[in-house]
């Protein structure tokens, strides 16, 4: 197991290097001087010259990248042009909101999606199956920002059930915190809910057709036991994988959701600074989210290997 994890980690080193290069190179897409883009155009010519020298911007691209990477490795993602706040601090400060939001969204997707998928698979062509297929399709096609507006319109503006904006931290007031996150989390988790429902249904159908289920049934085990102990346990393996892989799109979704619901998380940090052309922050968030995604993918692989012993021997 340790060797497996170690190997996966080693394999991701070149990926991380390339990924950081992407992030580094993005400022070269900006028309004009990258030093000015990174310092803001209120920076003095002297400051820009000093920065050029410090980051060795007059040398070949790879040298520049090396210098930049060296700083990033030491946790120095630069300083926000707009607020002079170190980028790493800004990210860390906003992380709890995004993590909570994502956690509630994921919980919503799992709690809703797995049972719905199981129901659909065990009662094919029933009303449940219809609902599951509908949810699966809607999850694919429903834009989060449209769903958000519909929910705000109905739940908050018409009936005033839940707040439309703002964030209450969990430590401050758990109930209010949950209420403030419910609408955004449902919106954010909806696409994942659809994907999980579809995947659970498909996987359950596949497993239910397998010989060992027939054998279990033949042994005279109760249907419930067969379903939960044997079928679901096996069907969940691909669902776990899918859930892990969906984390990335979940993080991407936070940009719009946090903007619409006025939540001070990573996504909001990203979009606010896109508007402000604050490239150190944009780079920082890009890098951070990509690394998180890579880490969750890696964790998913490991989890998958744990759940399905065959993988390890490959």
């Amino acid at each position: 197991m340790v060797r497996f994890v170690g190997k996966q980690c080693l394999l991701s080193i070149p990926t991380i290097l390339l990924l950081t290069f992407f992030v580094f190179a993005i400022v070269y897409l900006i028309p004009g001087d990258p030093a000015e883009a990174l310092l803001g155009n209120t920076a003095s010519p002297e400051a820009i010259a000093a920065y050029r020298q410090k980051m060795r911007l007059d040398e070949p691209l790879l040298v520049q990248y090396g210098v930049w990477l060296g700083r990033v490795v030491h946790g120095d993602l630069g300083v926000s042009v707009r607020t002079s706040e170190p980028v790493i601090d800004a990210i860390v400060a906003r992380l709890p909101v995004t993590l909570q939001l994502s956690a509630v969204a994921l919980a919503f997707a799992l709690v809703g999606g797995v049972p719905l998928g199981v129901l659909a698979a065990t009662r094919r062509n029933s009303a449940w199956d219809g609902v599951a297929q509908l949810v699966g399709l809607a999850g694919l096609a429903m834009p989060g920002f449209f769903l958000a507006l519909l929910l705000i319109l109905v739940v908050s503006l018409k009936y005033g059930l839940l707040p439309v904006s703002g964030y209450v931290s969990f430590t401050e007031n758990p109930v209010e915190s949950f209420k403030s996150l419910l609408l955004p989390a449902v919106t954010l988790g909806f696409a994942v809910l659809g994907a999980i429902t579809r995947m659970t249904r498909t996987a359950m159908l596949e497993v239910l057709g397998d010989n060992f289920i027939t054998a279990a049934r033949a042994k005279g085990l109760r249907e419930r036991t067969v379903l939960v102990r044997h079928a679901l346990k096996n069907a969940l393996i691909p669902v776990v994988t899918l859930t892990g892989l969906q984390l990335g799109s979940l993080l991407g979704g936070t940009i719009i959701i946090e903007k619409i619901f006025g939540l001070p998380g990573i996504g909001r940090l990203m979009i606010d600074n896109v508007y402000a052309h604050d490239f150190p922050v944009i780079q920082g968030v890009l890098l951070f989210l990509a690394l998180i995604r890579l880490a969750t993918n890696l964790a998913t692989d490991v989890l998958y290997a744990l759940l399905d012993p065959q993988v390890r021997f490959q």
């Binding site: 005033g160 703002g166 001070p264």
Partner: peptide
């Protein structure tokens, strides 16, 4: 002071009584 740079969000929040 709730910082709501998005004018739409601010107006919606006001109308929703927040």
């Amino acid at each position: 002071y709730r910082i709501l740079p998005d004018g739409n969000v601010k107006t919606i929040a006001f109308k929703a009584g927040e």
